[in-house]
Each structure stands twice: as C-alpha cells, then as structure tokens.
C-alpha cells in the first residue's frame, strides 16, 4: 500500500522547444493539503494537466496510490480517483447548478444505456441517490438555494464553489484545486479557507492546491512546492518557503486580489 495518495516522479514536458515542466516531483500523503505555487507562467496549471492526463509527460511517472496513471485518458484518471477544478472556470454553463454536479456524480453509476432507456429499478435508485448526494454536496459548499438556476448565471465566487462541488461528486481520493479563490473578496476567501481545510475530513480526500494568494497558501498548506519556469526551486513547510531567498527572488510576493495577467482572461482557444 503506497504511502502517498498521489506521487508524481520527475515529470517533464516540453512544447516544441519550450520546456514547460522539468523534473517535477510531488509527494502527497493521505489526507494532506499541499500547495503548488510559482509566478505566472511557471507551469503550475501545466503540471495539473500532466497529473490529470490532459498532457502526456515526455518523461516521468504519476502514481495514484499504487496505480500508475500517466498516459491515461483524463476520464480514466477521474474514475481512478483524481478530480480537479479549472483555473478558467469550465462549468457546463447551460445546465443548472445541480445538474453540473449530477453529471460528475454519474461517474459512479453502473447503469448503461439500456437500463437508462428502460428505467430499471437500479437506474431509478441510482438517479435518486445521485440527487440526494448532490444536494448534500451543494450544502457543504453553501450553494444549495440556487440549485436549479443556470450555472452560468451564478456569481463568480459561487461558480468556483460549484466547480469544487462538481469535482467532489466524482468521489475522488485526490483533489486538485486550481486557484480556487481567484477573484474572490477577502470575506469569501476567509470562508473558503475553512471550507478547503475541512474537505479532507468530510470527503476523505487529499488536496493539492495552486494559488496566488500567499496568505491563504501559507495558512492552510502543510507543505509547499515552488516552481518557476517549470523548474522546482524550493520545497518545504510554509516557514521554510517564506524564508527561502530563491523563492523571494523569483516571486517577490504577489499581493491579494491583484493579478493583472491572470485577470485578463483566457487566451483564445487554439485547437488542433
């Protein structure tokens, strides 16, 4: 039985000539809350994409518990037990809040097309159980009273909460949160702090967090990895990181609520 919920071993990825991630190693124990930080463009989201199967690493391996998962499809990895949220919120906009979560919960059902079309007892039971569990999830995240609204009409902070609820609906063992409090005001961030910490008990899940809000990161993360230009420049407890000169040099500490480049929005999609 592996002692790490998630173990990434010297992951590397290049895009053309650009090395986006070099030799990244992440060791996430059970029920831990770790952070992944770095200046913009450092490769943090790319790292998440590597972990969740969106990209295939050029080198290195990813282990979810005992199972090696690098090179697998994202849907396989989600089924294996790793879920994520997205930096540039990717909700199912036209669907209602609860349907966003129910869609993800569908991963754990056993009914196929036939059972669905015939509405067999198993299918009916699963659908009811899904609704029940999803309402509880929305409760935990504090967004139940908007459950039938279209998710794209939600305020920004609630959209981020919804993404977390949706990820949790897949019953993950490892949860990757990509900038969960970006764009929130300090009141909301304060609430999220407690919420994120409590997720581990409520859902028996290990969490890896990307964030720019240093206050939050230093507060709740037990261990932090710092990367810059794809290279790991420091690892350790919050105290170690805060004192680390390389980190200070690379980073100069970004203040809360101000990240002009991230806030400018996503680059236009350029697909193959």
């Amino acid at each position: 039985m592996s002692k790490f919920a998630l173990h990434a071993d010297r992951l590397s990825l290049s895009f053309g000539g650009l090395k986006a991630v070099s030799d990244l190693t992440i060791e996430l124990p059970q029920k831990a809350l770790h952070g992944l930080i770095g200046p913009n463009g450092a490769g943090k989201t790319t790292a998440f994409n590597l972990l969740t199967g969106v990209y295939k690493p050029d080198q290195g391996a990813v282990y979810l518990g005992d199972e090696r998962i690098d090179g697998r499809k994202p849907s396989y990895i989600a089924k294996a037990g790793m879920a994520r949220t997205f930096q540039n919120i990717r909700l199912f906009g036209e669907l209602s809040v609860i349907d966003n979560v129910r869609t993800a919960a569908g991963l754990r059902t056993r009914s196929g097309l036939f059972r669905t079309l015939m509405r067999t007892p198993l299918h009916v039971a699963e659908e009811r159980a899904i609704t029940e569990r999803c309402i509880e999830l929305l409760d935990v995240l504090g967004i139940t009273d908007r459950k039938d609204e279209q998710s794209k009409s939600l305020p920004y902070g609630d959209q981020r909460r919804l993404e977390i609820a949706r990820a949790l609906a897949t019953e993950p063992k490892v949860l990757l949160l990509d900038e969960p409090v970006a764009g929130m005001n300090s009141q909301e961030k304060h609430e999220m702090r407690g919420l994120i910490e409590s997720l581990r008990e409520t859902f028996d899940v290990s969490i890896l967090l990307i964030e720019h809000d240093m206050g939050l990161v230093m507060d709740i993360c037990e261990h932090i990895t710092v990367i810059d230009h794809g290279v790991t420049i420091a690892k350790g407890s919050p105290k170690d990181i805060q004192a680390n000169p390389a980190v200070i040099e690379a980073y100069l500490g970004v203040p809360d609520d101000s990240d002009p480049i991230a806030d400018a929005g996503p680059l236009p999609e350029v697909a193959p």
Partner: peptide
Amino acid sequence: KPSGLFGKSTVEKV
C-alpha cells in the same frame, strides 16, 4: 496526420 503536411498542430489551453 490531421495537421497535414505543413500544418502545425496547435494545442488548446486547458
């Protein structure tokens, strides 16, 4: 080879 002979396969930002 969906990008054809001279095309480059561009990657979508996730």
